Simulated assay, not measured.
Amino acid sequence: MVSLLTWTDSFHDQLTEDSAFLRADLRLDTELVDKVILQLNRIYPQILSDKEATKFRNLDVPTSVRLSELLAHLQGRGEEACREFYRALHLHVEEVYYSLPTRLRLRDSLDPLAYPRVCKQRYVLNDRGPVFFLGCFSVTVGMALLYYYSEAKVAGGSRALGMAALGLKKKAQEVLIWYTEETLMK
């Protein structure tokens, strides 16, 4: 289950959540992974020693495997290592950094004016669908045509109008039957 990320979540938690995305993202090729490893090794040797950097830069191992091992290693190192990984990712692979699931949620939750939430509301008058609407519309048009053409033939059209009232609600039924009785009396 994916938890909702807030600004108080640790970088370790964020990296745990982003790991699957990072492993699956094809934009992280060998060159970019090497840049991130070198950034961590040169600037923060306490996070990634020379021996570890050499291990993660081994070109005999596929990039996806090296990246998985690097992420697991950084998670084992703790909060500071995870934070520095995000910093290195931001410096060298900005488009991947901004497309991380945790970054997207953070951006949306922290700045509602710059990125307003799109609430797609569906205005439904009924849940029966378009066929039901077309059926009701056809019945209404049929009744209107019947009424319009029955002006000349008062008796036949009024009976049909009275019969049409059978499927309507009580108030509409009373009005149509009253109208039919009035026209038959004339």
Rank of each mutant, 00 (worst) to 15 (best):
T30E: 15
E31H: 07
L32S: 01
L32N: 03
D34L: 04
D34G: 04
K35I: 02
K35H: 15
K35C: 14
V36E: 01
V36H: 01
I37L: 13
I37N: 13
I37W: 10
I37V: 15
L38E: 15
Q39V: 01
Q39K: 10
Q39N: 14
L40A: 09
L40S: 05
L40Y: 07
L40W: 05
N41K: 11
N41D: 08
N41I: 00
N41C: 14
R42P: 02
R42F: 11
I43V: 13
I43D: 06
Y44G: 01
Y44T: 06
P45R: 11
P45S: 08
P45Q: 11
Q46L: 14
Q46F: 13
Q46Y: 12
I47G: 07
I47H: 14
L48V: 01
L48G: 02
S49N: 02
S49M: 02
D50F: 09
K51N: 03
K51C: 02
E52G: 00
E52R: 07
A53R: 00
A53G: 06
T54H: 11
T54W: 05
K55P: 01
K55I: 09
R57L: 13
V61Q: 09
V61C: 08
P62M: 06
P62C: 02
P62W: 03
P62L: 08
T63F: 09
T63G: 14
T63V: 15
V65Y: 12
V65F: 12
V65H: 13
R66Q: 07
R66D: 05
S68M: 06
S68C: 07
S68Q: 08
S68A: 13
S68Y: 05
S68F: 06
E69W: 04
L70A: 05
L70M: 14
L71P: 02
A72C: 09
A72G: 12
H73P: 08
L74G: 07
L74I: 11
Q75L: 14
G76I: 00
R77K: 15
G78D: 12
G78V: 03
E79A: 11
E80Q: 09
E80G: 12
E80D: 14
A81Y: 04
A81P: 10
C82N: 03
C82P: 03
R83E: 15
R83D: 13
R83V: 04
E84Q: 12
E84Y: 10
F85Y: 15
F85H: 03
Y86Q: 03
Y86T: 00
Y86L: 04
R87L: 02
R87N: 05
R87Q: 02
A88K: 00
A88V: 00
L89S: 09
L89P: 10
L89T: 04
L89E: 07
H90G: 10
H90S: 14
L91D: 07
H92Q: 05
H92L: 05
V93K: 05
E94L: 13
E94I: 03
E94G: 05
E95W: 04
E95Q: 11
E95K: 04
V96D: 14
Y97S: 03
Y97W: 12
Y98K: 00
S99T: 07
S99M: 10
S99Q: 12
